[in-house]
Write a protein that binds this DNA or RNA. Structure first.
Lengths: 232, 232
DNA sequence: GGTTCGCACTTGTATATACAAGTATGTACA
DNA sequence: TGTACATACTTGTATATACAAGTGCGAACC
């Protein structure tokens, strides 16, 4: 047995899918839907609310509810924690901490972290392994103001992001994904032949008080699966 | 003036951000929240519902509501239509239809499109230009069952996805993004030096009745900006 | 003719209530 | 000891109602 609000949702999406309602068209008002389906207004409203959340409909107070004209414009990019992902595949996760140091920020790092030039920042470089094969290179710069003990941690038992999320719960993050060639150095760390295309993901994380860290991920070969809606 | 359910949301997220509540912790029940904030249960419930939708909380009927332990695990990858994106930058959009043909599906295409081997499918290859510079290569295979007139369209005035979205409104789409090197042929179409890393996005679209098309996008240099939460 | 006001209709917020359904726990019973 | 049941508490669904707030239109007024 299906809930009633769910039936109303189905009726509306069906009307959109078979072309009865075009993008921009007005859908029946909450009161009309309520009467048509013999439910209360709040139940009809719930159906509309969930379709609005899904991006199928658009609501304007005082005007009405309409079929969205630009539905498939964005998509959930789901990237699980590298640790979890590997273990879910039934494989063995391990890592190697290549570098863990405190150094003065050059202009690029300073700009990304929002600290003065030459300010001391923490840097770690970790190679992640799946069944002892290197599959991911992580470069991370951390603002000491938010994680003063970062430099003293043991990151073989706990990932850097796990630790940071503990001491400075992040509230926001920006990401950029691009395709690059691995540098000589990076290729050596990952035990790759150079000139191999890699997915590079740059990420900047914010806590409530400022920029916590930015990290650089190199994924040779790894693919990311996307679900949802996307337009190109 | 802020709505009351919004105040409750703020109170909960604040509790999570300053560490009062850890992932896995139980948040007050709907009735407790209602009493504590002097609102009805439905209002307290709405606050929780929106936080659940946002991925901050997890609810289980009969058990309670808990702080999510894997908050920042996914991110909205927002990719606007190439056409819109270029025009929003104030640049000139144009394209060149390289191929538009009907041919028998090889095993790969047949598998992706869900049609028998050697079935006739439509294929188009379009190069998208920004200010007359090629920036994107689009390969698309279409199941004729859902768009029989696809092969006769003029795709200089209308993009392939615009047309398909009209004749067969899509209900779902899968995407895979990876880094590859452009092939000799692809590099020529895009007027690139070969051996350049490109973002390759493979997409399969579904209508209510089956697989409509799958497309392959090659983006040299182009970066995708992500917003929201992501974990690695 | 042009402005203002009021009305009808829409969505937004909030309440009080009722029952259904899932989970855990303890108690009574075999 | 162990199974079954009753109970308390949780979230899930649904209703009827009330008022707030935004939009559009027409009628009354100047």
């Amino acid at each position: 047995m299906q809930a009633r609000f769910s039936q109303i949702k189905a009726a509306i999406t069906e009307g959109i899918e078979n072309g009865d309602m075009q993008p921009g068209d007005k859908v029946p008002s909450e009161n009309q839907l309520a009467e048509a389906h013999s439910v209360s207004r709040m139940t009809a409203r719930r159906a509309l609310t969930e379709l609005v959340d899904a991006g199928i409909l658009i609501r304007t107070q005082g005007l009405g509810t309409f079929v969205s004209d630009h539905r498939p414009m964005s998509s959930m990019l789901t990237i699980r924690s590298i640790h979890q992902e590997i273990e879910q595949r039934g494989h063995r996760y391990s890592n190697r901490v290549v570098a863990q140091q405190c150094l003065p920020a050059d202009d690029t790092r300073a700009a990304w972290l929002g600290v003065p030039l030459a300010a001391q920042v923490y840097h770690t470089q970790v190679v992640h392994h799946e069944n002892d094969l290197p599959i991911q290179l992580e470069d991370r710069w951390v603002n000491p103001a938010f994680a003063p003990d970062y430099i003293a941690q043991d990151f073989t038992s706990q990932t850097t992001s796990q630790y940071l999320n503990q001491v400075a719960p992040l509230t926001q993050a920006d990401h950029v994904v691009e395709a690059v060639l691995a540098t000589q150095n990076q290729a050596e760390q990952l035990d790759l032949s150079p000139q191999l295309p890699c997915l590079k993901i740059t990420r900047r994380t914010y806590s409530a008080k400022g920029i916590v860290s930015f990290a650089l991920l190199l994924h040779p070969g790894n693919r990311y699966r996307l679900g949802g809606h996307l337009d190109f």
